[in-house]
Design a protein around this nucleic acid. Structure first.
Lengths: 91, 91, 91, 91
DNA sequence: ACACAAAGTTCGCGTC
DNA sequence: GACGCGAACTTTGTGT
């Protein structure tokens, strides 16, 4: 109420010419989303711990997941190029 | 089937001595969580766009949110120290 | 010098249609630059350790340095805006 | 030594109980080192641009350089593991 | 294991 | 409209 009223006055509301309610709304939403995001990050981390304790190499698993996100053709090409360069350099 | 059988053999399953099902399970969970995380990131980005189009300075809003995450006492102390240093340096 | 010589020798100058010498040159330069960069990073870190042991708050010093990089007018504006938003929100 | 002396000497040596000169010294050194570091970063970026314009794939070159930093045995092991996992998963 | 620092990747912006 | 530039976010590595 009070918000939408004041908004119509200018394009902003009250305190110091700031659309406070709107800002507060934005911030609240962002903070909530960030919390959820953080929680997901923690979950992922937990799974990696579990992976590690199962004896898998987490670094390799991370790369594996990365590769799965990419177009297989691109992966193929990248790896071929890498081999080419390495052999060319003698590495 | 074949997987759970082989699992019981050692602590790993079949292909090349790898607990494939377990790995597959981990990866699936991670990929799903990462997707959700990504979606939240997109939501947050959208809100910042809205914030910007409302005339707020997103950079400042980001800092504001950062500060709100911190203990007010710590914020106070940090800012006081910063002022002290700045004045001492003549900045 | 030594590199351009190897081009004429020939066993590695053009493996699989790749300008190997050129690539080798690029890589060598990059690796060297990265080493120098890393060394500078270590130096900086050392100074921060010293700062810490002198009793300064390194986090605050970092922010101070950040602020010094910015245009003073922008800093001023940012801080003014931040205050405005904070007061508006009651923070 | 010299520092605690300067505290008593001068006009800016000890503002508000702060070892200003010392702080100023630290900051100056850090800022200078950071500039050099930044310059190196720019140099590296230039080389990558050159690499790109020569027709090499910069992403692959970056990875190549990364691999060269690692112990060859570790690289070997990582790649072997990656293959194992991929085949196990059918990827 | 946590926090800090570095690197890589992505996105928005100004330019041409 | 694309391209390069710069900043921001994310992720990876490291030292405590």
């Amino acid at each position: 109420m009070s918000e939408s009223q004041t908004v119509t006055i200018g394009h902003n509301s009250n305190t110091g010419g700031i659309a406070v309610d709107r800002l507060r709304n934005y911030i609240g939403r962002i903070e909530r989303l960030e919390e959820e995001k953080k929680a997901l990050g923690a979950d992922i981390k937990d799974i990696y711990q579990e992976i590690k304790s199962t004896g898998f190499d987490t670094k390799v698993v991370r790369r594996l997941i990365q590769l799965r996100k990419m177009d297989p053709a691109d992966v193929e090409e990248m790896e071929a190029l890498l081999d080419t360069y390495r052999h060319a350099l003698g590495d």
